[in-house]
Design a protein around this nucleic acid. Sequence first.
DNA 1: TTGTAGGCGTTATCAA
DNA 2: TTGATAACGCCTACAA
Lengths: 358, 358
Amino acid sequence: MPDSFDTPDAARPPISRSRRNTGRTVLSDVAKLAGVSTATVSRVYNEPDKVSATVRERVEHAALALNWFPNAAGRALASTRSHIAGFIIPTLDDQVFASQVSGMQAAFAARDITLVLGCSNYDPAQAIVQVRAMLARGVEAMAIVGEAHPAELFAALQLYRVPYAVTYAYREGSQHHCIGFDNRAAYAEITEHLIGLGHRSFAVCIQPTRDNDRVQARIAGIRSALERHGLAVRPEHLLEGESTIGFGRRCLRSIWQSLGERPSALICGNDHIAFGVLREAEELGIEIPDELSVTGFDDLAIAKEIRPALTTMRVDTAEIGRLAAQHLLDALDGKRPQHGHEVHALLQVRQSTGPCLR
Amino acid sequence: MPDSFDTPDAARPPISRSRRNTGRTVLSDVAKLAGVSTATVSRVYNEPDKVSATVRERVEHAALALNWFPNAAGRALASTRSHIAGFIIPTLDDQVFASQVSGMQAAFAARDITLVLGCSNYDPAQAIVQVRAMLARGVEAMAIVGEAHPAELFAALQLYRVPYAVTYAYREGSQHHCIGFDNRAAYAEITEHLIGLGHRSFAVCIQPTRDNDRVQARIAGIRSALERHGLAVRPEHLLEGESTIGFGRRCLRSIWQSLGERPSALICGNDHIAFGVLREAEELGIEIPDELSVTGFDDLAIAKEIRPALTTMRVDTAEIGRLAAQHLLDALDGKRPQHGHEVHALLQVRQSTGPCLR
DNA sequence: TTGTAGGCGTTATCAA
DNA sequence: TTGATAACGCCTACAA
C-alpha cells in the first residue's frame, strides 16, 4: 500500500489481539515449508496440471512431511462444494435398502463424494428432519427411497436447488426422477402368473400401506390384474402387517380358520412373509402348491433353497443404488436430465406355485 | 473507531473488488432482519439461555421467515467441531454390520451427530483410505469393526486425538476399547456343547481368516476347547470360504466325498454356511443330527424356522452399535474411559445338534 | 506458471 | 445481555 502514513492496523502492536489457534497443521504450513504460496498448494490438490512438476513434487513432499491433508470444512466453505451426497432410506434392517446404499456409496466414492445416510423409520416427519439436516450439511445431491413423502420435502429440495432422485420405485408419470422398478407392474405379473395357473381366489399378505407408495402400487397391480379377469380380493383376504416370518404364519392361520371360501393362491409382500406362510402351511398340513400356491418378493438367497422352493421376484437393488448415484453425478456434471431409469423385477418361478387343482 | 481521519478501507469505493456471493441466506441476513448482531443470532442456536426471551423470539421469527438454518461447514470451521462421527465396517451386505450401523446411528442422532459410513470390503488398504477421508472430514470420534487393522490406522487416530472404539470383537488384553463379544469364547462354547454331546470328530467351515481377527479368534476358540479334551481338527476338515449357502454346500460335499474318517459334527462360521450344509445334507441323504450335528452363528430369523431348526448363537448387534456410540459420546464428554463393553453371544440349542451316535 | 488478497458462513473473544 | 470483529482453513479471481 503506497500510503505514506501508517494505517491504524499497522500502528497496532504486531501481536494480534486474540488468536484462537487450533494447533493443527494447515495449508499455509505446507506452503511455508515448500517455499510456495498457499494458492500453489491448493492447486496441487485441485488443479494439478496447472502446477509444474518440480513444484508439485516439492509441495507433496512437504505435505507428507507435515502429515497434512486438506480440511473438508474449510474446503467446503471456500469452494461452496461440500462433496457430500445424502440418501434417505426407511431402515438399514432390510437387505433391500442396505444393498442400495452399498451400491450408491461405491459409485459416489469413485468420484470422491461422501454419502451420508438418513433413516426415516417409515415416518414422514423423520424424513423431513433428515432432509433439513442434510441441507444444513450442504449436500450436493440427494436420493430418497419412494415418492410417498410430504410435498414439503420435495419443495425444500427444489428450493435449495439440490438435484435428487427417487429410488426403488419407478412409475410412469411420476413428478420425480425415478430409479427403480415398477412395483405395480411387478405385482401384476405375479398375479397374472397365478391366474395363468388357473387360480381364481386370492389372498394377499403385505406390509403396511400407510405412507408407502411401493406397497400401495403393489396392491394396485394385483387388483388391476384381477380386474382384467373379472376377479377381486375379498377384504378379509387382504392382510397388512410387519414384514416378518411371524406375520406370515399368523396370516395363514387366520385365513385358514376363517369361514368362507379359502383362497387357492396367496401373494406375499416379500420373502420373509412368504417363509412364514410356508412354515405354517407345513404345520397345518396344507400341501404347497397343490392346496395353496404362495409367492414372495426379493428372491433372498434362501428362497431357492427352502422346500418347497419359493416362487418370487428378483430386483437388483445394488444396481439401483449405482444407477441412482450415476444419475445424480450426471446432474452435477450438468448433463441432460433423463427422466429416470427403470430396472426390471424378474419372476423366478419355483415350486411354491402350481396349477389350481380345485 | 475514534480516529478523525478516514481509514484506507473507508476511503475505497464501497463496491469491493471481488465479491463472490453465493446467493444463499446466511446468518447475517437473519441478524439484519431481527435487528440484532450476528453474535446474538449465533447464541440463540448455541447458548439460548444467554439470550433474553424477547430477542430470542425475534431471531427465531426472522430465521423462520427467511427459511434459514446454520451452515454446517461454516459452523465446523469456526467452532472446530464437525458434529460428525465415522464408522468403518467391512460391508453393508451383511446384516450383522448393517444393524450395528443402525443402532449406532440412532444413538448419535439423538446427540445431533451425523454418522458417516465407510466400507472397507475386508481390505486393510481401503480401511486406511477411509480413515484418512474421515480425518479430513474432521470426525470427532470413530468406530471400526474388528481390530485386525494396520498399526498405521490406529496410529493416525491417536495422532489426531480422535477417540475410537473397536466393535463386534471383544478381547481381554486388547490395546483398544472394544465393544462386542468374545469370538473365541463363543466358539469355545459351541465346541463344548458338541463335545458334551459326545462328539469327537469335527469339521469347520468358516469365512476367510485373512485380515480377520474375529474369524481367527473363532478358530482359536474351537481349537482350545478341543485341546482341553485331547482333540483336534484335521487339516482337511478345516475349510475357508465365502459366507454363502453355496460354500456350505460345497464344503459338505467335499468332506463327505473325501477319504478318511467322516466328522460327526460340523461347525460353521455363520448361519448362511450352515443353511448350505443342511440343504446339501438333505440332498445327500445325511440324517441331521443323527449322522451329523451342525451349528451356525448369528441366529438369523429363519434359523429357528427351517427343518431341522439350526443350533446357533445370537448376538445383539444393534445393541453393540448403540453401546459403541455411547462409549464414544462419553469420551467426547470427557468422562472416564472405560476399557470397553462386553456383550454376550447366547447359544440357541435346536434340532441340528444331537448326541453322537457313533 | 506462480503469487496476492479477499471472501466463504459461523463462532468466540472481548468490550460495552 | 448484547455488539463489534477477528479468527477458523481453504479457494479463486486477478495480477504479475
